[in-house]
């Protein structure tokens, strides 16, 4: 049941070990998001993530608590980077424990889909051709978050 927002790179193995040491359950689902090396605009060299300190941690904490209540999770952990992200670096890691696979899968997906539009992070892409572009929010992300609100996936 914890949130970690940090500038320095993190190890996925280490985060999973920390989570396993603090939570348990019959079903563990994890998600790791890495920097993609391309977009519709072309090749991406690096990413910079800006965030709203304080609000970010609170939103993620409330999201985890909501996921426990909604999917009867036994544990959760959300780790998110900010600052400069290089190729192959993980950006986000989410782990959830539940007694059954359906709740574990749904809880993890709920956290990720909601995090994308509710946690105050903003991505800036440094393209291989030298351009620097702020990532625009995607309508499909907002639609997925709205669908969770409406209970479409349950």
């Amino acid at each position: 049941m914890s949130v970690l927002v940090q500038e320095t790179p993190f190890s996925v193995d280490q985060q999973q070990s920390l989570f396993l040491a603090s939570s348990s359950g019959a079903g563990l689902v994890t998600f790791t998001g890495y920097l993609r090396d391309f977009s519709a605009e072309g090749g991406i060299e690096a990413l910079e993530l800006e965030h709203y300190p304080g609000m970010t941690e609170r939103v993620l904490e409330e999201l985890g608590v909501a996921a426990v209540s909604r999917f009867d999770l036994r544990g959760w952990r959300i780790v998110h980077r900010y600052g400069r992200i290089g190729q192959q670096d993980p950006i986000v890691w989410v782990g959830v424990f539940a007694d059954h696979r359906h709740e574990a899968f749904a809880g993890c997906q709920f956290i990720m889909d909601t995090l994308k539009t509710k946690a105050p992070f903003w991505k800036k892409e440094f393209m291989c051709d030298g351009r620097v572009l702020w990532v625009q929010s995607k309508s499909e992300d907002a639609e997925r978050e709205q669908a969770w609100q409406e209970g479409v996936y349950e």
Partner: peptide, 10 residues
Amino acid sequence: VAFFPPMTGG
């Protein structure tokens, strides 16, 4: 008070 564009986390 804060002003910002739609969020793009994850």
